[in-house]
């Protein structure tokens, strides 16, 4: 119980560090010095002191969007297994809840983007949904594979019971999860988080009209989402449970850090895919998850 609470508190505190690590890796690759590791904390602090500006075209949905998104994300933080593969809340079937919590979060992001009436934000919203259509089944198939592998229907049950022996399936599923992780967090081969040209962005364009504390919440939610989906990937790649809280916590944290490192490296080495190519990548992720499922069933 203690370790589970520790997990959640750590996630809430340390999540904004991940974008810092990614940016630092990218800076090192590009030969720059890079922004401080804690930059996002400074940004959040700055944004929270400001006041939000609301366009007169917006309604209730616009300001409720970021808050509801964060609330939903916090809900999924309770379900997701972290160190030792344990989560605070678990019940049979929470894999479905987990996937749909992300669906709800996406719904609020899209609704609040559409609410501004800006054509650019509508475009971003449409792309976000289009890619989600491909990413969601892949996530589902991956989770179903693991559920069948371990004969367990709750996320933490699944993540606490498999080990290295399931090598092939874990390899395929974690590859699929990594692709979904990049797509859901709007990282590079799918979406460029740095670009500020509306025509090419997906996630960033949806939050253009938010300001002040709302924007802070959105940034914070984005980093938390990185952490939550990251712990799914890390749990599948490193299925190691020593039983000692400190060791497990250290393994998990270094896994998350290594994952951000990997994201940074991927972002430094790859260019963004053409928009038309993105579904192909996501279908490849789906195919990997599907192969794992076939391996498991046969």
């Amino acid at each position: 119980m203690k370790s589970v609470l520790l997990n959640i508190i750590l996630a809430l505190i340390a999540a904004p560090l991940l974008p810092g690590i990614i940016n630092r890796v990218k800076a090192v690759f590009a030969g720059r010095k890079g922004q401080p590791l804690l930059q996002l904390y400074y940004d959040l602090h700055k944004l929270l002191k400001k006041s939000a500006v609301f366009s007169s075209a917006t309604t209730f949905f616009f300001w409720v969007g970021p808050l509801a998104g964060f609330a939903v994300l916090a809900g999924s933080l309770l379900v997701v297994p972290q160190a030792q593969g344990k989560s605070l809340v678990q019940f049979p079937g929470d894999i479905i809840l987990f996937v749909y919590l992300f669906g709800v979060m996406r719904f609020f992001a899209v609704v609040s983007a559409m609410d501004t009436g800006s054509s650019f934000e509508g475009m971003g919203a449409s792309r976000e949904i289009q890619f989600a259509v491909f990413a969601e089944p892949a996530l589902f198939v991956g989770l179903v594979t693991l559920a069948r592998k371990t004969a367990n229907l709750s996320l933490s049950g699944i993540y606490s019971s498999f080990s290295w022996h399931d090598g092939t399936i874990l390899m395929l599923v974690s590859a699929a999860f990594f692709i979904i992780f990049l797509a859901e967090n709007s990282r590079l081969p799918v979406d460029d988080p740095n670009t500020h040209l509306e025509l090419t962005m997906i996630h960033e364009v949806m939050v253009l009209d938010h300001s002040g504390p709302d924007l802070a919440i959105i940034f914070y939610s984005a980093s938390l989402k990185l952490w939550i989906l990251g712990s799914l990937v890390v749990g599948a790649i490193i299925p190691m449970h020593t039983g000692n809280i400190i060791f497990d916590e250290l393994i998990f944290l270094s896994g998350i850090a290594a994952l951000s490192l990997a994201v940074g490296i991927v972002e430094s080495c790859m260019a963004r895919l053409k928009l038309l190519k993105v579904p192909q990548l996501l279908i490849a992720g789906f195919a990997l998850a599907m192969l794992a499922l076939i391996f498991q069933i046969m």
Binding site: H165, G167, T168, L291, F295
Partner: peptide, 16 residues
């Protein structure tokens, strides 16, 4: 184990 990984790799190269 190693065999399975090699075989999986074969399959992934097909898809690639």
């Amino acid at each position: 184990m190693l065999i399975n990984i090699l075989i999986t790799f074969l399959l992934i190269t097909n898809i690639g």
